[in-house]
């Protein structure tokens, strides 16, 4: 199972699904992380965490712990 954590800097992938059903996962969905969406890892923060993704034309930052709940194809 590949997740957003497996992306290399600059790499893109298509979201498969979000694993988990807590409020945070609901939030990820509201922010546009839905199946079929293209996500690109832009960079990681200077200290390694959080990560910055580009999605639906805007930039979103997630901690590694959240990014690992997003499965990609």
């Amino acid at each position: 199972m590949r997740t957003l954590l497996d992306l290399k800097t600059g790499e893109k992938a298509i979201v498969k699904k979000i694993t988990g059903y807590s409020l945070i996962h609901r939030r990820l969905l509201d922010m546009g992380i839905v199946s079929g969406t293209c996500v690109q890892l832009v960079k990681s923060a200077p200290l390694g965490d959080p990560l910055e993704f580009k999605i639906k034309g805007y930039h979103l930052s997630l901690r590694k712990s959240e990014a690992s709940t997003v499965e990609i194809m």
Partner: peptide, 9 residues
């Protein structure tokens, strides 16, 4: 808490 934040241009 999780960290989900938009980085505006």
């Amino acid at each position: 808490t999780p960290f989900v934040m938009e980085l505006p241009p």
